[in-house]
Computed example of a mutant assay.
Amino acid sequence: MRWSDRPWAMPLYALAAALALGELAVVWLMLHPNVPSDYRAYYIDRTTTCLPQPVTAAYTLGTIVDFRSGGPDTRELRPCGWEGPAGDGMHALGESARLAFAVPAQDLTLTLEMTGVTLPGPRQQTVIVSANGQPLGRAVVTPGKTGRFTFPLPASAIANGRADIILDLPDAVTTSPGQSNVRKRSIKLVKASLTPATASSTP
């Protein structure tokens, strides 16, 4: 009697096929994990150093938020990429940092006051600002000096009643040899605000 003719052969074949399919499914999931895009960018693709955490983004339009020591608790406005406050501002960590503001969908003006860190490295720190995937502009921040920068924030860059601001920091520097990218330094955030856009500030 051939192996395949035995009555218990077919169930064994079916079991082996099921196990093989299960292993293939595991391999496929490893190569194509069904995870949120932010998780993938941080842990798998390593294209960002900022993994957003849940925040309320509670904010009153027009309020100037002070990020220096002694200022209000700003944790619910900072999804990721910040450390502090430390004296005269909130340190940005890594190669990007995020802010979140719950605001109505209307044309606004984003104002940021930032100071460049005084560390060996580039003579200036470039800050590329975007909101919900839309570029808003860039700022060049000088080490040891505080600058005030404004960016038009169109209503189309506000999603679900929230402006998610990303600061990309391509000139961020490490403070010691072998340091992880997530610990890079670049700027300190001093103040931030969102105000209704005026005719002169509307692009």
Rank of each mutant, 00 (worst) to 15 (best):
L29M: 07
L21M: 09
S156Y: 07
Q179D: 03
P170E: 09
T126H: 11
V127G: 02
A131L: 04
T142R: 10
P52S: 07
T74Q: 06
L15Q: 06
L21K: 00
H91D: 15
Q179A: 15
G89Q: 07
F151G: 01
E23T: 00
G62V: 09
G94R: 08
P52I: 09
G70R: 06
P54N: 11
N34T: 10
E95G: 11
L31D: 08
Y42P: 09
W8F: 15
W8V: 12
L31W: 14
V35A: 08
A139F: 06
P7G: 07
R138W: 15
A100K: 04
T48C: 13
I187N: 01
G144V: 09
V127I: 00
Y13F: 07
S37W: 08
A18V: 09
S130A: 09
M30W: 00
T63E: 11
E83R: 04
G87L: 05
P7M: 04
R68C: 01
S193Y: 02
S37C: 01
Q134G: 05
L93G: 03
L24A: 15
N34F: 05
A58M: 00
N181H: 11
P177D: 00
A157F: 05
L169Y: 02
G89W: 04
A131D: 08
N181Y: 14
K188Q: 15
R98L: 09
R6F: 01
V141I: 04
T175E: 11
